[in-house]
Design a protein around this nucleic acid. Structure first.
Lengths: 220, 220, 220, 220
DNA sequence: GATGAATGAGTCTTCATTCAT
DNA sequence: TATGAATGAAGACTCATTCAT
């Protein structure tokens, strides 16, 4: 029994349904999709609901993104980029390695707090049903931690020797995993401030990280 | 043009399709289900395919497990318990905290290597579409790392003061996340031996862990 | 070997399968559903067959009615209303109580004769498998006989005193039951004209009804 | 997930599951089936549940009754016969027509009160999904009212002339319908005593019935 | 550029019924 | 004789996707 369109989210975006420049419509759809995927996860979200919420007909969506999967991939990428940008900016404001990592961590958690929904999209990409997004998501997550390390190491001038390459990659992911799990925990303990989280995880990771960096520097 | 049953996995289990004692069939079905969920993830796996692979009709499966969800939950639980057991055993063979953690880590990675498929089930439980397994899975993952810490700390006699409780819980999950992400990376670099992985992650985590434990002991 | 759609009932409705305005399709589906439920009863009717007969795919039906139950309820309600309307109209044309009842009875039987299929839907609602339609159906049947009595009594100015309330309700249903059973018998003796049926049942019920009405009027 | 047999109703019947004379088992199964069909109606009742409740395996049931439908038909017939017997006995105790009908009515309602479950079986037979029981049920219901009339008329010496045959049959069913509908109403107003019900319906039907009988007698 | 209408394939689940032991 | 194990067929329902307007 077809649901009545009711007030679509579109209105909030400041555009009447109907004639809308393509780029704007695209952006608006991505926003709605972000929220929907965050709420329902890839499989739970239906194109029908997306269309309803966006206040457009389904063909519009297909015209813009081709398929549910491509739409999802786009959401994931966009969110990943926004997160990366926020972290990068924060890290650049510091110069000491530890301070850089701390700043990056705080920026990271702040992003999550501000954009809960986008964040969920990012992590749930781990699923995706067909492991097709695993690729994209993994790349993003990878980049995420790599970013932190790179930025952190920027001043240290450390560059991975060939042998340490694999290890660095692996550790990079391990760290990303630690952040993500911590984020999931945070979801249920939102009273803890981002700075607290950052201090905790720095206490856990920094000593080891410092050691690894020294070791890499030596092996160079 | 109905598909021919083709070689069901049953044969691998050493049982002709047909009459089989209930317990045996149960076990066999769980095995096939483990593999299937590992390949396709919860949503991607269909009961039809499961039945086809197991060489039985669907009602058999429903008679044994009641529903897809219950079947999945059973797989997750079973795998979690097996993993925990393997780790526990390994840890108990050592007495020095660091050695214990190392032994546990190796056992952990060995379990994954031996039972790739089961392992995927465990991690993918993070999804589950309806966050219904998230509970179970989270509990298992939590227990996993808690287990390591507990066992590790056994001799140290450390017991969390009230204030450190939240931090410990959070760190525990962060650590689990690190292990899991590392495992995912390992999936694509199977040439790295478990001991190597263990050493890497110990180098990363141990210094911080040692510090945390000292700190907790002091605050007691 | 997929079955050819064969002549769907659609043709009878004057619409090619394919694109049809929503309201028209709705109406057409209700018609087909009426017939199907009449033939097979709620449980015996399958949405698959309904779709096949209507010459549409199942999702179309679900889009229109939401579920089998809602579709059935709609059929029942519609039929009930149509019947009530027909009876009401007929009764209003007479002024003498007995003549009113007779006119109503004839209208009632004529409705059945004209819309056999709809009629079956109405009576089978008594079942419904889960007693979920029992409510709706009971209400309709109740209303049916109440209607006759009310209309009949309109001029008589009789109004139930508090004490006679239960009795009136019970008798009302008993009368409805008599009509329904008589209708079922009629199904197998279609040669009997509606007027004949009306005379028979009036001979059976009128004397008693007259007595009851007098009695109620006196007790007021 | 197969339910545990748990205490089957069998025990109440005073026979251990296992070795039981065929006739006894049959009787016991019918008892359980009566209750089950009464609770769930034909379609809602499953052979699995029946077997579980009876504490036997399904093949036993199939061995005894051949199919679900035959089992149901048997239940319906048995119940109908018991009801007829009870009414017949009561009627025979009176000699005046009106008194006979009244006694029969009371016996009828008493039967329902005492054997609610059996009664439901009887009326729900109106459904049956495939109208296959409609036949059997109709016959029984028919016989029911016929019985009352016959018994009532016994002393009156009235015998239907050929012309009045159809009318009598039709009226007979109409009366049965009235009783049944009244019974359904009673289900929700169990505080009303059977005698009250009998008086009500006699007030409604008797005057007309008397007239019909006179008319028939005259036309002879 | 946008939509209302429609679909085919596939989902999980249940049931009456019957072998093989 | 009685049963545990199994099955084929069907049921309601949903979804991503695409014509025809």
């Amino acid at each position: 029994m077809r649901a009545v369109p009711s007030s679509p989210d579109t209105l909030l975006e400041g555009h009447r349904p109907g004639r809308v420049p393509r780029a704007v419509r695209s952006e608006q759809l991505l926003g709605v999709a972000d929220r929907l995927f965050a709420e329902r996860s890839f499989h739970g979200a239906s194109m029908d609901e997306l269309a309803r919420r966006a206040g457009v007909s389904k063909p519009v969506i297909y015209d813009h993104f081709g398929s549910k999967e491509q739409l999802f991939a786009t959401c994931v990428r966009r969110t990943g980029e926004a997160l990366a940008e926020q972290v990068r900016t924060a890290v650049r404001k510091e110069s000491e390695p530890r301070a850089r990592l701390r700043a990056g961590s705080i920026a990271y958690f702040r992003f999550l707090a501000e954009q809960m929904q986008a964040w969920a999209v990012l992590f749930d990409a781990q699923e995706g049903g067909d492991a097709r997004f695993a690729a994209e998501a993994a790349r993003i997550r990878h980049r995420q931690s790599e970013l932190m390390i790179d930025l952190m190491a920027e001043s240290a001038g450390t560059e991975a020797g060939h042998e340490g390459r694999a290890m660095l990659e692996a550790m990079t992911l391990a760290i990303a995993g630690a952040y993500e799990s911590l984020s999931l925990w945070w979801r249920e303990h939102p009273e803890v401030p981002p700075e607290q989280l950052a201090d905790w995880i720095l206490d856990l990771l920094w000593p080891g990280l410092e050691g690894l960096m020294t070791q890499l520097a030596a092996s160079r």
